[in-house]
């Protein structure tokens, strides 16, 4: 996995709440069997109209906003567990998503793909939206080591939470699979122990 330490970039404001993974990537695009190419269909039904023409009102089609940070409304990534949502955001070029709330599964999926979900307070989220819409070239800085997000021009910052283990993974660029496969002996011991204790249970039950 790619390493993540800090990122300073402009951001795209997606001022919608409860953005579900069906919107991020509609089910009809889930037929692919590899991870590539999902970026083209990110937010497909919001981004294009019925005839396949870009929908001018949608923020990804607005040339004013560019950048590798997506700032979105409360409860981002709810709904289906499809990891395709994280792949699509990543493939489109986003490295960070900021919201005041993330659905559990989406958050895990994002972290497993080196896409950093940054959860901020509703107040700070509002400040971000205001800063970006006032000045689309405003830069937002994400400092993972110190768990800080800040608005460059005003210097206003907020601390964000992240699981210590996940943070270490991101900073070092390793993932859960590396970690778990290093634990196989321990896992076998557990299996052994459980099969014994199930036999014990047998005795008690009889």
């Amino acid at each position: 996995m790619e390493k993540f330490t800090t990122l300073t970039a402009t951001a795209v404001p997606l001022d919608s709440e409860n953005v579900d993974t069906d919107q991020i990537i509609p089910a009809r695009f889930l037929k692919a069997t590899d991870k590539a190419g999902f970026g083209d269909n990110l937010f497909r039904d919001w981004r294009y109209d019925k005839t396949g023409e870009p929908n001018k009102d949608f923020v990804l089609n607005d040339p004013t906003y560019k950048g590798s940070i997506l700032v979105a409304g409360n409860n981002f990534g709810c709904g289906s567990s499809r990891e395709h949502a994280a792949w699509a955001l990543k493939a489109y070029g986003f490295k960070v998503v900021i919201s005041s709330y993330f659905a559990d599964i989406f958050k895990g999926n994002a972290l497993n793909n080196g896409l950093l979900p940054v959860q901020v307070s509703p107040d700070y989220l509002y400040k971000l939206f205001t800063a970006i819409t006032a000045n689309p070239s405003e830069e937002i800085k994400i400092d993972l080591e110190n768990q800080l997000v800040s608005i460059n021009s005003s210097g206003e910052s907020e601390k964000f939470e992240i699981d210590t283990y996940k943070k270490t993974c991101l900073i070092n660029g390793y993932d859960d699979i590396d970690f778990l496969t290093s634990k196989l002996e321990r896992i076998k011991e557990y299996e052994q122990k459980r099969s014994v204790s199930e036999k014990e249970m047998d005795k008690i039950a009889n």
């Binding site: 567990s81 499809r82 990891e83 395709h84 994280a86 599964i105 895990g108 999926n109 497993n112 793909n113 283990y165 993932d175 859960d176 699979i177 970690f179 778990l180 496969t181 634990k183 196989l184 896992i187």
Partner: peptide, 16 residues
């Protein structure tokens, strides 16, 4: 679970 976690369970029958 997401697909990365599907991979984890394939590889270790466990999840973090």
């Amino acid at each position: 679970i997401g697909t990365s976690q599907v991979t984890q369970v394939f590889a270790s029958q466990c999840l973090l």
